[in-house]
Protein backbone atom coordinates (compact mmCIF):
# COMPACT_ATOMS: atom_id res chain seq x y z
CA UNK A 1 0.00 0.00 0.00
CA UNK A 2 1.29 3.40 -1.02
CA UNK A 3 0.95 5.19 2.33
CA UNK A 4 2.56 2.32 4.22
CA UNK A 5 5.42 2.04 1.73
CA UNK A 6 6.09 5.76 1.82
CA UNK A 7 6.28 5.83 5.59
CA UNK A 8 8.53 2.76 5.69
CA UNK A 9 10.83 4.43 3.19
CA UNK A 10 10.94 7.60 5.31
CA UNK A 11 11.91 5.65 8.41
CA UNK A 12 14.51 3.53 6.64
CA UNK A 13 16.25 6.72 5.52
CA UNK A 14 16.95 7.54 9.18
CA UNK A 15 20.38 6.61 10.58
CA UNK A 16 20.61 3.19 12.15
CA UNK A 17 17.21 2.01 10.86
CA UNK A 18 17.11 -0.74 8.26
CA UNK A 19 14.19 -1.84 6.14
CA UNK A 20 13.09 -4.44 8.66
CA UNK A 21 13.01 -2.10 11.67
CA UNK A 22 11.29 0.54 9.53
CA UNK A 23 8.38 -1.76 8.69
CA UNK A 24 8.09 -2.91 12.31
CA UNK A 25 7.84 0.71 13.42
CA UNK A 26 5.23 1.54 10.79
CA UNK A 27 3.00 -1.44 11.66
CA UNK A 28 3.32 -0.47 15.30
CA UNK A 29 2.26 3.10 14.51
CA UNK A 30 -0.82 1.87 12.65
CA UNK A 31 -1.89 -0.18 15.66
CA UNK A 32 -1.05 2.22 18.47
CA UNK A 33 -3.20 4.87 20.18
CA UNK A 34 -4.09 7.73 17.83
CA UNK A 35 -3.15 10.40 20.38
CA UNK A 36 0.36 9.01 20.66
CA UNK A 37 0.73 9.34 16.89
CA UNK A 38 -0.57 12.91 16.93
CA UNK A 39 1.86 13.84 19.67
CA UNK A 40 4.74 12.09 17.85
CA UNK A 41 3.92 13.90 14.61
CA UNK A 42 3.71 17.22 16.44
CA UNK A 43 7.10 16.63 18.08
CA UNK A 44 8.73 15.81 14.77
CA UNK A 45 7.20 18.68 12.85
CA UNK A 46 8.13 21.32 15.43
CA UNK A 47 11.59 20.12 16.48
CA UNK A 48 13.37 22.41 14.03
CA UNK A 49 11.40 25.44 15.25
CA UNK A 50 12.23 24.76 18.86
CA UNK A 51 15.89 23.83 18.54
CA UNK A 52 18.50 26.19 17.21
CA UNK A 53 22.20 26.79 17.69
CA UNK A 54 23.54 28.48 20.80
CA UNK A 55 24.81 31.91 19.78
CA UNK A 56 27.98 31.39 21.81
CA UNK A 57 29.12 27.77 21.44
CA UNK A 58 27.08 26.49 18.50
CA UNK A 59 25.52 23.59 20.40
CA UNK A 60 21.79 22.82 20.30
CA UNK A 61 19.54 24.85 22.55
CA UNK A 62 15.89 25.86 22.97
CA UNK A 63 16.86 29.31 24.27
CA UNK A 64 19.24 31.86 22.77
CA UNK A 65 22.12 30.70 24.93
CA UNK A 66 22.52 27.04 25.90
CA UNK A 67 22.44 25.62 29.41
CA UNK A 68 26.19 25.11 29.54
CA UNK A 69 27.05 28.64 28.41
CA UNK A 70 24.47 30.02 30.84
CA UNK A 71 25.62 28.06 33.87
CA UNK A 72 27.67 30.26 36.26
CA UNK A 73 29.14 27.20 38.00
CA UNK A 74 31.01 26.01 34.89
CA UNK A 75 34.76 26.41 34.65
CA UNK A 76 35.31 29.24 32.16
CA UNK A 77 39.02 28.58 31.80
CA UNK A 78 38.53 25.34 29.83
CA UNK A 79 37.34 25.18 26.22
CA UNK A 80 36.57 21.85 24.62
CA UNK A 81 36.48 21.81 20.78
CA UNK A 82 34.12 19.25 19.24
CA UNK A 83 32.84 18.48 15.75
CA UNK A 84 29.10 18.12 16.36
CA UNK A 85 26.46 19.22 18.91
CA UNK A 86 25.90 15.51 19.69
CA UNK A 87 29.49 15.36 20.96
CA UNK A 88 28.64 17.99 23.61
CA UNK A 89 25.88 15.74 24.92
CA UNK A 90 28.13 12.67 24.83
CA UNK A 91 30.82 14.40 26.88
CA UNK A 92 28.22 15.85 29.27
CA UNK A 93 26.89 12.34 29.84
CA UNK A 94 30.37 11.15 30.88
CA UNK A 95 30.06 13.54 33.83
CA UNK A 96 33.76 14.35 34.18
CA UNK A 97 33.96 17.66 32.34
CA UNK A 98 32.86 20.98 33.77
CA UNK A 99 34.28 23.48 31.25
CA UNK A 100 32.89 25.20 28.16
CA UNK A 101 32.44 23.95 24.58
CA UNK A 102 32.87 25.10 21.03
CA UNK A 103 31.15 23.22 18.19
CA UNK A 104 32.86 23.38 14.78
CA UNK A 105 29.97 21.76 12.88
CA UNK A 106 32.12 19.35 10.93
CA UNK A 107 35.70 18.37 10.27
CA UNK A 108 38.18 19.41 7.60
CA UNK A 109 37.93 17.19 4.51
CA UNK A 110 39.08 18.54 1.13
CA UNK A 111 37.54 15.45 -0.47
CA UNK A 112 34.12 16.64 0.69
CA UNK A 113 34.90 20.27 -0.08
CA UNK A 114 35.10 21.16 3.60
CA UNK A 115 37.89 23.57 4.45
CA UNK A 116 38.38 25.88 7.44
CA UNK A 117 35.97 28.50 6.00
CA UNK A 118 33.09 26.05 6.12
CA UNK A 119 33.58 25.51 9.86
CA UNK A 120 33.26 27.90 12.81
CA UNK A 121 36.97 28.56 13.38
CA UNK A 122 36.40 32.34 13.18
CA UNK A 123 33.95 32.24 16.08
CA UNK A 124 36.34 29.97 17.96
CA UNK A 125 39.21 32.43 17.54
CA UNK A 126 37.03 35.36 18.62
CA UNK A 127 36.12 33.51 21.81
CA UNK A 128 39.72 32.57 22.53
CA UNK A 129 40.84 36.16 21.93
CA UNK A 130 38.20 37.78 24.12
CA UNK A 131 37.64 35.19 26.88
CA UNK A 132 40.16 34.01 29.42
CA UNK A 133 40.68 30.39 28.55
CA UNK A 134 43.71 28.66 30.04
CA UNK A 135 43.37 25.35 28.24
CA UNK A 136 41.94 24.29 24.89
CA UNK A 137 40.93 20.62 24.74
CA UNK A 138 40.75 19.06 21.28
CA UNK A 139 37.96 16.47 21.28
CA UNK A 140 37.53 15.89 17.56
CA UNK A 141 36.79 12.34 16.37
CA UNK A 142 39.65 9.82 16.18
CA UNK A 143 39.38 9.77 12.37
CA UNK A 144 41.63 11.11 9.61
CA UNK A 145 39.37 14.17 9.31
CA UNK A 146 39.17 14.72 13.07
CA UNK A 147 42.94 14.49 13.33
CA UNK A 148 43.47 17.06 10.57
CA UNK A 149 40.95 19.36 12.24
CA UNK A 150 42.82 19.10 15.56
CA UNK A 151 46.14 19.85 13.81
CA UNK A 152 44.52 22.87 12.18
CA UNK A 153 43.42 24.24 15.56
CA UNK A 154 47.01 23.77 16.77
CA UNK A 155 48.22 25.64 13.69
CA UNK A 156 45.82 28.55 14.28
CA UNK A 157 46.83 28.83 17.95
CA UNK A 158 50.55 28.47 17.25
CA UNK A 159 51.51 31.97 18.37
CA UNK A 160 49.18 32.13 21.36
CA UNK A 161 50.22 31.60 24.95
CA UNK A 162 47.63 28.95 25.63
CA UNK A 163 47.82 25.32 26.65
CA UNK A 164 46.39 22.89 24.09
CA UNK A 165 45.59 19.28 25.00
CA UNK A 166 44.02 16.37 23.21
CA UNK A 167 41.92 13.43 24.43
CA UNK A 168 44.15 10.55 25.43
CA UNK A 169 44.26 7.65 22.99
CA UNK A 170 42.20 4.61 23.75
CA UNK A 171 39.29 5.86 21.68
CA UNK A 172 38.64 3.41 18.87
CA UNK A 173 40.45 4.59 15.73
CA UNK A 174 38.15 5.55 12.90
CA UNK A 175 35.14 5.71 15.21
CA UNK A 176 32.98 8.62 16.29
CA UNK A 177 33.02 10.21 19.70
CA UNK A 178 29.27 9.72 19.70
CA UNK A 179 29.62 5.94 19.90
CA UNK A 180 32.33 5.86 22.52
CA UNK A 181 31.26 4.45 25.86
CA UNK A 182 31.17 6.73 28.90
CA UNK A 183 33.98 5.04 30.81
CA UNK A 184 36.43 5.19 27.89
CA UNK A 185 35.52 8.80 27.19
CA UNK A 186 35.88 9.80 30.86
CA UNK A 187 39.28 8.11 30.99
CA UNK A 188 40.55 9.86 27.88
CA UNK A 189 39.26 13.22 29.13
CA UNK A 190 41.08 12.84 32.43
CA UNK A 191 44.26 11.61 30.78
CA UNK A 192 44.41 14.26 28.06
CA UNK A 193 47.79 14.80 26.44
CA UNK A 194 49.52 18.16 26.10
CA UNK A 195 50.06 19.12 22.45
CA UNK A 196 52.30 22.13 23.07
CA UNK A 197 54.46 23.22 25.96
Amino acid sequence: MKSIDELIRSFSRLPGIGNKSASRIVYHLIEQNRNDNLMFGELISTIQDKIHLCSICGSFTETDICEVCNDPSRDRSLLCIVEQPQDVFTIEASGVYNGMYHVLHGAISPLDGIGPEQLSFGEMLNRINSDEFIEIILATNPTEEGDTTALYVMHVLKHKEIKVTRLASGLPVGGDLEYTDKVTLARSLRGRIPMNS
Partner: peptide, 21 residues
Amino acid sequence: KQRNALLKNGDESLIGIYNKK
Protein backbone atom coordinates in the same frame (compact mmCIF):
# COMPACT_ATOMS: atom_id res chain seq x y z
CA LYS B 1 43.21 11.11 -1.05
CA GLN B 2 42.71 14.22 1.06
CA ARG B 3 46.02 15.73 -0.04
CA ASN B 4 45.20 15.07 -3.70
CA ALA B 5 41.78 16.69 -3.27
CA LEU B 6 43.54 19.64 -1.67
CA LEU B 7 45.97 19.91 -4.60
CA LYS B 8 43.02 19.97 -6.98
CA ASN B 9 40.94 22.66 -5.37
CA GLY B 10 41.42 23.17 -1.69
CA ASP B 11 42.58 25.73 0.82
CA GLU B 12 46.34 25.90 0.22
CA SER B 13 46.98 26.93 3.80
CA LEU B 14 46.26 23.31 4.76
CA ILE B 15 49.13 21.83 2.74
CA GLY B 16 51.56 22.02 5.67
CA ILE B 17 49.24 19.91 7.82
CA TYR B 18 48.84 17.24 5.14
CA ASN B 19 52.59 17.21 4.45
CA LYS B 20 53.25 16.54 8.12
CA LYS B 21 50.60 13.81 8.31
